[in-house]
Nucleic acid binder design. Structure first.
Lengths: 227, 227
DNA sequence: CTACTCTGCCCGTACGTGCGGTCAGTCCAC
DNA sequence: GTGGACTGACCGCACGTACGGGCAGAGTAG
């Protein structure tokens, strides 16, 4: 009926990736509980059984979505941390990156963010949870380093990281990638308020927040569309 | 079987409030989709039919939870805005109040926050959505006033409000009211970073963030446990 | 080249379960 | 009698997933 988009010689992973992509979008749009095999299968013109064949259970499917997402985020974070040294620049990079995800990978980002809570509860999510914790630890370490280096005013690094993550992870509830609000502007404003709030001087704040500045450019290069 | 906790002479509204409270807790713990009539009824030792009798549908039940929650938040906000005049104090009050909810009304707060997205999608949520918008507008107005009065450095009030709400609304994913992290400390740290980020001077930042200061006390009085 | 087998992708169906909601009817207060 | 609170049996449906089989390409022996 629906002719195969891939070459008839069978794609490497079959339609596995296709399934995961569609499922991710459905989770982003309706949430995990409301996303179901039937709709995904119908949209792809395949049987529900095919999905089960590839992933086993719905839980495992979500776990794989989360793990793939976090792996990319971790790789990117390590990449830009390797290029940026100053704590204020590093914090700004996390903000620029966080906003960038919402635009460049809206589906996976929303799916991840609206279902984060399952990382805590559900079994089978240990890997994804560990990845998330690792990411958070990177941010906490940067905030801590900044305080010790005297770049940031003294304060609780962990609480600050939660305050920062909150702003970014909440974006899925209001940010529309197709809207007229530009992501660079969001990132810039968030950067300015946050860095100023950490006690960084106005000149360095402006430089790090600038959408055309070196920090934003570094993040853009590192987070380039993957192969 | 289970003897009625209320006086045998039948409570005022019947067991309506009891049902709503238990349902709210279930939504907070499992999310709306996983919360169901059967479990609520079993926990209260009543029939599913009773719940339907009082509320009609599950949707309406959630709508009522959200509306009740937002009405209280709006009342409180108007109350402390009436007592505080300075923009920085007002912003601090919103933060103190936001953190306070997570401790004093954990169930309703978590239920509201984890299901906010339904305010946008679902029909029947118009009232709750309007209340939420009204609350947000209060914050935006305060931020805007602060900029115009020269108390805050220039910047986008709407974006700043979203940044602020994000930090507070994300709390449900990590804050444990029974944990050893004290809510006053969270509020203080959030206040300091935010106000400093808005360009407020260090002395006023400390005063407004102080858990024992006048702003925090004002919020505590206004948000006192309701009758 | 041919024939056979193996293997992995995919299909369709059927089953069990959980849940929202219906309904007829009971009990009790006024 | 009237009306509201409450019950418990029941319905229909949606959804996860188990299962048996079909089918095409790869490998292999002759």
């Amino acid at each position: 009926m629906t002719e195969p988009v891939v070459a008839p010689g069978r794609a490497r992973g079959g339609r596995r990736d296709e399934i995961l992509t569609t499922f991710t979008r459905h989770v982003a749009e309706r949430g995990y509980d409301r996303a179901n095999f039937g709709d995904v299968a119908a949209e792809l013109g395949m049987s529900k059984g095919t999905i089960v064949h590839h992933f086993g259970t719905k839980d495992r499917m979500l776990a794989e979505v989360q793990e793939r997402y976090m792996r990319r985020r971790l790789d990117e974070a390590h990449a830009f941390l390797g290029r940026l040294g100053a704590p204020d620049e590093r914090v700004a990079a996390f903000v620029h990156a966080g906003v960038r995800y919402s635009t460049h990978e809206p589906a996976t980002t929303v799916a991840f963010q609206r279902e984060v809570v399952r990382l805590t509860d559900e079994p089978g999510m240990e890997t994804a949870r560990a990845q998330r914790d690792a990411y958070r630890d990177l941010v906490v370490a940067v905030l801590q380093d900044g305080v010790e280096a005297g770049v940031f005013v003294p304060g609780d690094a962990r609480l600050r990281s939660l305050q920062m993550f909150g702003s970014l992870h909440w974006m899925w509830t209001w940010f529309d990638p197709a809207g007229r609000l530009r992501p660079e502007d969001v990132a810039a404003e968030f950067c300015r308020t946050l860095l100023r709030g950490l006690g960084v001087g106005e000149e360095r704040v402006s430089a790090a927040a600038d959408p055309a500045g070196s920090v934003a450019r570094c993040v853009a290069e590192v987070c380039a569309p993957r192969s």
